[in-house]
Amino acid sequence: MITLSILFFLLVVLVFLSVVIVQQGTVAVITIFGKYARVMGPGLNFKIPFIETVYRRISIQNRSVELAFQAITADQANVNFKAMLVYSVLNQGEETIKNVAFKFIDEASFMQALTRTIEGSIRSFVATKRQSEILALRSEIIEHVKSQLDTLLESWGYHLTDLQLNDIAFDEVIMRSMAQVVASSNLRAAAENEGQALLITKTKAAEAEGNAIKISAEAEKTASQLRGQGVALFREEVAKGMAESAKVMNEANLDASLILFSIWTEAIKHFAENGKGNVIFLDGSTESMEKNMQQLMALQKLNTVGN
Rank of each mutant, 00 (worst) to 15 (best):
I48P: 02
I51F: 10
E52Q: 14
V54C: 02
V54P: 01
Y55R: 11
R57Q: 11
S59M: 01
S59Y: 02
S59F: 01
R63V: 03
S64H: 08
V65T: 15
Q70F: 00
Q70E: 15
A71G: 14
I72N: 12
I72M: 14
T73W: 00
Q76S: 08
N78L: 03
N80Y: 13
K82T: 11
A83T: 04
M84T: 12
V89S: 05
L90M: 04
N91H: 11
G93K: 09
I97F: 10
K98A: 05
N99K: 15
A101Y: 03
F102D: 08
D106K: 06
A108C: 02
F110Q: 09
F110W: 10
F110G: 06
M111D: 10
A113T: 15
A113R: 11
T115F: 00
R116H: 15
R116W: 01
R116N: 13
T117Q: 13
T117H: 11
I118F: 05
I118L: 12
I122Q: 03
A127N: 12
T128M: 09
K129P: 07
Q131L: 08
E133R: 06
E133G: 04
L135H: 12
A136K: 13
E140N: 13
H144M: 03
V145C: 02
Q148A: 09
L152E: 08
S155C: 10
G157S: 05
G157N: 10
H159Q: 15
L160Q: 09
T161I: 15
